[in-house]
């Protein structure tokens, strides 16, 4: 199971993912530059990623708390998500995400 992550410098990383893990935790586990300061509580927006459009229909839609936090981030786009709210599953094998500048530690 893989997550394809592009960091803020445009470098592409192919990460081995584990079912049930939050994508934020996978990014952090590989030492990618992601702040994730609240540790997955959905109460900051420092694990902000852009999800490649073709994967969006496979994701659970964001909860209101996530939408609020993204609305307050400086570099939000229509495909923005908080990676702590994305749980890996077989369906998401190969998901492509790009780390937002505002997630840089």
């Amino acid at each position: 199971m893989k997550v394809i992550a592009t960091d803020q410098n445009g470098v592409r990383h192919e990460l081995e993912a584990i079912e049930g893990w939050r994508i934020m935790e996978i990014l952090r586990d590989y030492g990618l530059p992601i702040k994730a300061e609240c540790g997955g509580c959905c109460c900051c927006a420092t694990c902000h990623v852009y999800v490649d459009e073709k994967w969006i229909p496979k994701l659970y839609p964001p909860k209101p708390e996530e939408e609020d936090l993204l609305a307050d981030a400086v570099d939000t786009k229509p495909n923005s998500r908080l990676s702590c709210q994305l749980l890996m599953s077989a369906e998401l094998d190969g998901i492509e995400v790009t780390l937002a500048e505002s997630a840089r530690p």
């Binding site: 300061e37 609240c38 540790g39 509580c41 109460c43 900051c44």
Partner: peptide
């Protein structure tokens, strides 16, 4: 700290 500010109820 963070316990009280970020996740008091978690």
């Amino acid at each position: 700290g963070q316990c009280a500010e970020l996740y008091p109820e978690k």
